[in-house]
Every structure is written in structure tokens, then in C-alpha cells.
């Protein structure tokens, strides 16, 4: 119980730190980025929108910093993030549209990578010294140091050359009307294939290696030897005895990685012009659309915080040692 409260406390402090960061950064930075942005948009936006920015970022207002700070906190908690300059709709609507694409693409890919990687790790450790076990770790050391947007670039090069009609950017074909019909679903899947592959290639190694290493340690335990002595079939020892106990690091890692879904593939979304959270974050940065950028950053951080909390709870639930330990 004390443990849970302490984690909740940490959650609250970190959330506050992020909120405050969002508030302080634009006011603190040299060269006044907000004025810069206002000058850029002057004459292109209606005066009302400009006034809203002035209020949001504390320019030419006579309210004190502290009042501004509490106004900002109030706005954030009521879900009022202001208008997006470039998308010309409320920030919350932009996010509402983008978040599903990211969840769909990267969420599904993360789950796939976890399942595949864990299975490969289990088999690799079970057949220790086999060919799978021999090539994977060194290959993984190399792939882990490749920037994954570059893998995406290579995919675009390769597919663009050999499969001329395969879609290389966007979430669906230009002009297609979104709906639950077969052609559209096929279209979406086609567009998702390359970015998903780029993420899969670079993220699967972590799952494989963690699973394999824990599994190797568990396989040396006495109860596994006992199971062998009893003459249990190999697959039962592998899954019910060893893998079940070796899963813990990977499972809590999985809970964490779900939180990193929103932030995980900013560059992949950018590279493939896939209209998700990361794509809009970089668009917002490019156009100095600070309101949208702040809201996206907050959303990403909250997702991670919730996931960290979930991972903690999961570990505590599954592993009694953590409960008594702290």
C-alpha cells in the first residue's frame, strides 16, 4: 500500500514537472520564440486567433506570471488546449483524429514485436548454442545501433525500385474516403506495411535478448532439472516451467513499451508521412504551432507515465518479492 502511494506520488510530481516545463519553456527561451511566431503569422490569421495566442503565452498581458500559470493549469485540466494554427481547428480535435492512426500502426506493431520476440527468445534459450542462438545476439548489437528511420529509408528505396505501385507514404490513398469497407481496409493495410516493418526490424531484438537471457538463467534452476528428471515433455518444461517464470521482465517491459507507443516512432511517421501523433508533432514544430506541440508533448508524457505505473502494478501483482521487498 505504501509502495502504491509512493508510486502515485511520483506520478503526480512528474506530471506537474511536465506541465510546468510546458509553461516555462516558451517564456524562458532566449530570442522570444513566441514573438517570432506571431510576426510570422501576422496578417495571415484573424486578430482573434492572435489574441488567443497572446493570452496563452503571456504576451502583452497585464496578468502576473502566477495568475497565468494557474490559468494555464486550469485550461489544461479542462481539456482546453487552444487552437491549432496550421490545422485551423481546436488542438483537441487534431489530436483526436491523429491518435487512432498512431495507436493502430505502432500499437499493433509493438504487440507483434513483443509476441514474436518473446517466442524467438524462448526457443533460442531452449536450444542454446543452436543456429538461432548463435546469430541473433551479434546481429542485434548491430541493428540496435542503426537509426530506425534509416531502415525506413532503405525500405522506401528498395520497395520504390522493385514494386513501383506500392504506396510509400500516407496512411491511405489520396482521395480515398475513410470507411469500413473492404477496399479501404486493404488500402490502409498496404500503407501501414512498410512503416510497421521498419519498426518491427529495429524493436524485435530487445524482446528476443531480454527473454533469452532471463530464460537461460531460469533453465539452470533446480525445479527445471526436476521437471526433466520427471520425464515431462520438452514443450511443457519450456513453456509451463521455464518461460512462465522468465516472462516477468518482458511483461513489465511490455507494459512500459505500450506507453512509448505514442512517442516511439515519431521519425517513422515523419518519413512515411503517416498522419499520426509524431507526424503532427513535427508539423507543429516546423510551423511553430506551439499550442499543438505542447498538447502533443503532454499527451505523450501522460501515456508514458500511465504505462510506468501499470508496469509497476503488474510487477507487484505478479512477483510477490517486490511487495515484501519494499
Amino acid at each position: 500500500m505504501r509502495y502504491a502511494l509512493r508510486r502515485l506520488g511520483f506520478f503526480a510530481v512528474t506530471l506537474w514537472a511536465c506541465l510546468t516545463l510546458n509553461f516555462v519553456l516558451p517564456r524562458l527561451m532566449p530570442g522570444s520564440p513566441i514573438l517570432d511566431m506571431m510576426a510570422k503569422y501576422h496578417g495571415r490569421l484573424n486578430p482573434k486567433a492572435l489574441q488567443a495566442i497572446e493570452v496563452a503565452f503571456g504576451i502583452q498581458t497585464h496578468t502576473s506570471l502566477i495568475v497565468q500559470y494557474f490559468q494555464y493549469l486550469g485550461n489544461t485540466f479542462t481539456g482546453n488546449f487552444g487552437m491549432s494554427l496550421t490545422q485551423t481547428e481546436p488542438v483537441s480535435q487534431v489530436i483526436g483524429g491523429a491518435v487512432w492512426w498512431t495507436l493502430g500502426l505502432i500499437g499493433v506493431t509493438t504487440i507483434l514485436a513483443f509476441i514474436l520476440g518473446t517466442l524467438i527468445g524462448i526457443v533460442g534459450a531452449w536450444r542454446r548454442g543452436g543456429w538461432l542462438d548463435g546469430i541473433l545476439p551479434p546481429v542485434f548489437v548491430i541493428t540496435s545501433s542503426i537509426p530506425f528511420f534509416w531502415i525506413g529509408m532503405l525500405l522506401i528505396l528498395f520497395v520504390g525500385k522493385f514494386f513501383v505501385h506500392f504506396p510509400l507514404s500516407g496512411a491511405y490513398s489520396y482521395g480515398a474516403t475513410p470507411g469500413l469497407n473492404w477496399p479501404f481496409i486493404v488500402d490502409v493495410l498496404q500503407h501501414a506495411l512498410l512503416p510497421a516493418l521498419a519498426i518491427l526490424i529495429t524493436s524485435i531484438g530487445g524482446w528476443i535478448l531480454t527473454m533469452r537471457n532471463t530464460m537461460v538463467t531460469v533453465l539452470a534452476e533446480d525445479y527445471v532439472r526436476m521437471a526433466r528428471a520427471k520425464g515431462l515433455p520438452g514443450w511443457r518444461i519450456m513453456f509451463d516451467y521455464a518461460a512462465r517464470n522468465a516472462m516477468l521482465p518482458n511483461l513489465s517491459g511490455f507494459a512500459m513499451s505500450l506507453g512509448f507507443v505514442l512517442s516511439g516512432a515519431i521519425l517513422v511517421e515523419y518519413l512515411f508521412s503517416y498522419q499520426g501523433i509524431g507526424y503532427y508533432l513535427l508539423q507543429a514544430v516546423d510551423n511553430q504551432d506551439y499550442a499543438l506541440m505542447q498538447a502533443l508533448f503532454l499527451l505523450i508524457t501522460v501515456a508514458v507515465l500511465v504505462a510506468v505505473l501499470a508496469a509497476d502494478v503488474l510487477t507487484a501483482l505478479l512477483d510477490p518479492r517486490t511487495r515484501t521487498g519494499s
Binding site: A17, L25, A284, Q288, Y290, Q294, I300, V304
Partner: peptide, 20 residues
């Protein structure tokens, strides 16, 4: 701990966005 939890890459982007 806080810096460990905040996703680094978005944070990098957000800070650098104010320093164009």
C-alpha cells in the same frame, strides 16, 4: 527519476523547437 521517465526524444524536439 523524472528525467528518466519523460520520453527523451519528444522532450528534445520540444526544447529545440523554441530555439529554431
Amino acid at each position: 527519476d523524472i528525467l528518466l521517465v519523460i520520453p527523451t526524444f519528444p522532450l528534445l524536439i520540444v526544447i529545440l523547437a523554441y530555439l529554431p
